[in-house]
Design a protein around this nucleic acid. Structure first.
Lengths: 130, 130
DNA sequence: TTCGGTGTACCCGTTATATGGTACACCGAT
DNA sequence: ATCGGTGTACCATATAACGGGTACACCGAA
């Protein structure tokens, strides 16, 4: 599976997993009906304790992103795309909101801020015209 | 003083203080030579322990934003503006970078993202033409 | 000197994160 | 029925972050 975990970061591992799964569902990488890797497999793959994976899965289940098939595993719910897309929008909006608040509070000019945003946009999106 | 503290947030209080002081210096609200409120005064004002304030001040001192005059208090260094402006730029850039990474990783379209940014920009900067 | 104010160092309790280990109930395939 | 797989529920421990409390050394003014 395609999870990149930063164990030294300030964000809890289980939260990183939750976030990445939600973003993957929103992006279409994970589709409804698809199975998630088992807690033990993912734990051994990421060199992380099973309990941490289980906690992430429980949070995903509580957020109605994933369903627990007893004895089978975790499956992505069919109605999870809308939820995850909405969650992604809120997540991105919050990040933008916070960055803007800091910029304005720090006296950064609007033009400078817009320029920074556009520059980072091209840098990450390949160029801007895919 | 003009500090707004969110004690229930996921960001440590002392870090919030450090960030706000740096942004205030970058904005020009705090000027070189100006004294910061004493740890006890600010602590009682914000209903926060003195140690938390002291920790923020120590970090500011370590970052060469503020100087400790023994027995007198904390004073903003004259060369702190450049440092704080640079720190503000890095802070904002990091926030934008992270938000963009989430957005792209979640499959958000470039147009949708730019629209979200512009909307939030007008919302927070008054309108955009001050 | 004395006094009130300053930053600062130290100790401690609480909480969250993460790990490790064990055990249970369930399912599908053999 | 048996076996290996699954999620899940516990328990215990270690570590770090965070915040609160207390006491100390220092300074300037009275």
């Amino acid at each position: 599976m395609f999870f990149s975990i930063d164990a030294d970061g300030d964000i809890p591992i289980y939260e990183q997993l939750v976030r990445q799964v939600k973003l993957a569902v929103a992006d279409g990488i994970l589709v409804g009906g698809q199975m998630l890797p088992s807690v033990r497999q993912l734990a051994s793959e990421l060199a992380i304790n099973s309990n941490t994976i289980a906690r992430a899965y429980q949070e995903l289940q509580a957020d109605h992103v994933v369903e627990s098939l007893r004895g089978r595993g975790m499956v992505v719910r069919r109605d999870a795309v809308k939820r995850c897309t909405k969650a992604r929008n809120s997540l991105v909006a919050d990040g933008v909101r916070r960055a803007l608040a800091d910029a304005i509070s720090g006296g950064m000019s609007i033009d400078e801020l817009r320029e920074l945003f556009e520059a980072e946009l091209v840098r990450q999106s390949g160029n801007g015209k895919p």
